[in-house]
Design a protein around this nucleic acid. Structure first.
Length: 593
DNA sequence: CCGATGATGAATTGGACC
DNA sequence: GGTCCAATTCATCATCGG
């Protein structure tokens, strides 16, 4: 057990001590704080006029107040056209010495002249370390600000958006240096930049001087150009860009349904491996979330699949991956796909007026005993069929809580082992090892549906006949590992990151029970996977073949009444660690070619 | 402290209809 | 277009008993 990776790096101690909770609360207030600070510096005004909010909005994005006012004057209050004008004006007017980055729409600052093959963290920083990017006037004003505000202001002055800078500070912790913060945002930008070359000759001379002096021929298109191109093509006009869910939700095809008219897909050049990657999250996320996820994952189109085509329970999920999609095959045996087949004992008690054949999504909590009892009493009050009103009440509750009929007039929630079976895990996968029943439901509810994921991963079997090295992020109870194992793919090395100790124990004991010939290395925290650590891992195992994971959906899921905050939510923001790590792996792997 | 329990809606989408 | 209705949803939190 002398595994070098299990020893804790002392330099990480500080990170563990951070109080994330209090930081999270503060973050919300920081954005207006920066906006106000920026406004204070750019000009003094009485913020009473109706445009002030609009002005602050754009000032917060890094545009000067003068420019914003000019743009509003020209366009009225239509923020879309204001933005366009601002982008045009800022490109035309910005002098390179003052603002090396130009501000871009949405949260996309541009990095010109950045080449992903030229290493990860050296070249950007040099442009700023001299501190000469802003005037003395501003520095004077900054004295009155808190250290955090000062950092944020510095970053926005560099051309980063307040939102992005704030997120970086959240992710990197309050002790992070400017260098670390720009590093983090650099990773994000790499994910977003596209491998498109200059095509529009007319812009070229105007933006050329923004690109720095290291004269790369191949140059990433900055977001401004993407914006212009899309606008020209007319794709960008409305919110046409928002991703829609397919109907039926079968992605690029499922084994059980006839899925006509699919002619393969072409991946964006940036997305092509190595490594292969596979990302998962809930399909029904708040508006715009999947657009953002897709944009960060090289603009790969999500594959939305409902697991009701694989098992007896629905599970609507989006998957973004760069795997081949031809010649997939399902796990055998094909699992039962109706409630009666999956839970034969319920058939005897199932009333004819309950027309369900599939269960709804298996979640993290189950229905209460009191509810089951209320339903029993409601149904018991009648001989034969209850009136329609009662039927509707009972059915609504049964659907909401996934209750099944287990006796005369008796409904009950699913047992943990039934959930395991429905999700494609071996029976008792989550049982024992000190985990409570409640936590079993929770861990299972947060997991993959194994058959669905395995179907997508099945193409790897022929590609890696000798086995694979897998980096599994947010592993949970090991859905990815179980899927690969059941496909008969040898797991050479699995590096697994999972915060929950009981989950890690579940995967560990599954690993030991399934006669694995490879090595399982697990980590507690994604923060431990920094560039050095990943490089070290890649060195020792010989590179990762697959980076797989589904980041937390807490703040995206519809069941969350309390904190459905979107991708920037406390847990769901860990998505940015997924892309950070994927980018690092991609970067390091490209050097090994 | 741990584990179980029950109360707590909104966001989003799609379809029917006007 | 708009408006209503129906269906669905990898959850969080305070509380209580052991």
């Amino acid at each position: 057990m002398a595994d070098p990776f299990l020893t804790k790096d002392p330099s990480l101690e500080d990170i563990d001590d951070i109080d994330w909770t209090s930081e999270d609360e503060r973050e919300i207030e920081d954005i207006p704080a920066v906006q106000a600070a920026a406004a204070k510096i750019e000009a003094s005004s009485s913020s009473v006029d109706p445009c002030s909010k609009l002005i602050q909005h754009f000032v917060g994005m890094g545009f000067s107040r003068e420019l914003v006012e000019k743009a509003i004057e020209q366009n009225g209050e239509d923020s879309e056209s204001i933005l366009e004008t601002l982008l045009t004006l800022s490109v035309l007017e910005t002098s390179p010495s003052e603002q090396p980055y130009s501000s871009c729409p949405q949260e996309e600052p541009c990095v010109n002249g950045y080449d992903s093959s030229s290493g990860y963290d050296e070249n950007i920083l040099d442009d700023f370390s001299d501190g000469g990017s802003w005037s003395d006037d501003d520095v004077e004003n900054m004295v009155s600000l808190s250290p955090k505000e000062r950092t944020l202001l510095s970053l926005t002055k560099m051309g980063y958006l307040a939102e992005e800078a704030s997120m970086a500070m959240e992710r990197c912790g309050p002790k992070a240096t400017i260098e670390e913060l720009t590093d983090f945002m650099c990773a994000a930008q790499m994910a977003r930049s596209e491998a498109t070359y200059w095509e529009e000759e007319d812009i070229k001379p105007k933006i050329k001087n923004l690109s720095g002096e290291n004269g790369k021929q191949k140059r990433k298109m900055c977001a401004y150009d993407m914006y212009r191109k899309k606008k020209q093509k007319g794709i960008f006009n409305e919110d046409v860009e928002t991703i829609r869910l397919p109907k039926p939700m079968v992605g690029f095809g499922v084994p059980t349904e006839i899925c006509p008219e699919f002619q393969g897909r072409t991946l964006p050049e940036q997305a092509i491996g190595p490594p292969y990657f596979y990302y998962e999250n809930v399909a029904l996320a708040p508006k715009g979330v999947w657009d953002t996820i897709s944009r960060f994952l090289y603009d790969v189109e999500p594959e939305f699949v409902d697991s009701k085509y694989f098992c007896a329970a629905a599970r609507k999920r989006g998957y973004i991956h760069n795997l081949p999609v031809e010649n997939r095959f399902p796990l055998l045996p094909i699992p039962p796909r109706t409630i009666h087949e999956a839970l034969p004992l319920t058939k005897k008690w199932w009333p004819s007026w309950d027309t369900r054949t599939k269960l709804n999504c298996l979640q993290t909590a189950i229905g209460s005993a009191r509810l089951s009892d209320r339903i029993r009493k409601a149904v018991e009050a009648y001989d034969g069929e209850p009136p329609l009103r009662v039927q509707k009440y009972v059915l609504d509750e049964c659907r909401k809580w996934n209750l099944v009929w287990v006796g005369r007039n008796k409904v009950a929630p699913l047992e943990p082992d039934e959930v395991e079976m429905l999700l494609g895990f071996p029976k008792n996968h989550t049982r024992g090892g000190g985990i409570s029943r409640t936590d079993r439901y929770k861990s299972l509810g947060n997991s993959f549906q194994v058959d669905t994921v395995a179907y997508h991963l099945s193409v790897l079997k022929d590609l890696f006949p000798n086995g694979m090295n897998v980096l599994s992020l947010f592993s949970g109870i090991g859905g990815a590992e179980v899927a690969l194992h059941r496909l008969g793919i040898r797991l050479k090395t699995v590096v697994s990151v999972e915060k929950s100790e009981v989950n890690r124990n579940i995967v560990r004991s599954w690993w030991e029970q399934t006669n694995q010939t490879g090595t399982l290395i697990d980590f507690d925290d994604v923060q431990q996977l920094n560039g050095d650590r990943i490089e070290q891992l890649i060195d020792s195992v010989g590179g990762f073949d697959l980076v797989i994971g589904g980041s937390p959906c807490n703040n995206l899921a519809g069941s969350n009444r309390v904190s459905r905050d979107g991708l920037e939510g406390k847990e769901s923001a860990l998505f940015y660690d997924y892309i950070r790590i994927l980018d690092l792996v991609k970067c390091i792997m490209s050097r090994y070619q």
